[in-house]
Design a protein around this nucleic acid. Sequence first.
DNA 1: ATCTTTGCTTAGAATGATTCTTGATCTCAT
DNA 2: ATGAGATCAAGAATCATTCTAAGCAAAGAT
Lengths: 135, 135
Amino acid sequence: MPADLRMTPQRREVYEVLRVSHDHPTATDVFHRAKERMPGISLATVYNCLEALTEHGVVRQVNVERASSRYCANLDDHVHFHCEGCGQVVDAMPREDVTAAQLWKLPRGTKVTALDVSIHGLCPECAKANTKSSH
Amino acid sequence: MPADLRMTPQRREVYEVLRVSHDHPTATDVFHRAKERMPGISLATVYNCLEALTEHGVVRQVNVERASSRYCANLDDHVHFHCEGCGQVVDAMPREDVTAAQLWKLPRGTKVTALDVSIHGLCPECAKANTKSSH
DNA sequence: ATCTTTGCTTAGAATGATTCTTGATCTCAT
DNA sequence: ATGAGATCAAGAATCATTCTAAGCAAAGAT
Ligand SMILES: [Mn+2]
Ligand SMILES: [Mn+2]
Ligand SMILES: [Zn+2]
Ligand SMILES: [Zn+2]
């Protein structure tokens, strides 16, 4: 935890919800889960905590298309796979170092700070269900 | 143009705005530009046209983080570079075929339909301005 | 220990992009 | 020409997110 992030009970609880969740919950999802153990917490506080945690690099905000932001406590270098069938968002790890400048043509002198990748498609279960129903 | 997309004057105008724009305008940007030549057009219609054009694959919707959607008439396989300095969004072409399954570990049986990449950083101009001011 | 400053939490209001609703208008096949 | 089905326009509604203001709580100074 960064020293300059004050770990209030609410922030700890929001972080804990994310740490044990692997489904990339939205702010309202986090709100409902946090409420179970901390009934007084408000949605505004969840938004504030998520912002504080994100800004301090303790969690990641995950945006898939225009949908509500989701949050992820996995800090390893990874991207997100979004299943168009069941809607789940799962982590995908790079096979090796993936560098933007190697894969895409960028003007000489460009400084890359982040690479944001979402892969869209069908998870194995939805892919199977899809072929079955469409033959 | 797909045969099943009725090309009304409004849709043609919205498409024309995007065809000549290379800055990935938002819906309101498109609205203001379209209004110059078609003063009666409404923002709702611009949204409708953008949706129709997007659904028929004639233009692409470009989402960078949580900002308003931008639109792009370039149908070539490409990704978007977003400059954190000046905010511009520019196209970046792949150096060669970039396949998600080759670069990221995905469960066996996953079907990939689309790869959505945004590169974040500083364009050459902003990168230069940045080093100058920060030494 | 008390004052002081600053940051955090909360409820509710405000924002702003997008979508929806409704009635008018247009297109196209008959 | 007629009727069905699209499309358009204006405004209302939605909904995620942000802002506001007031009360609290922790940290620092005296
Ligand atoms: Mn993740
Ligand atoms: Mn583009
Ligand atoms: Zn699925
Ligand atoms: Zn720039």
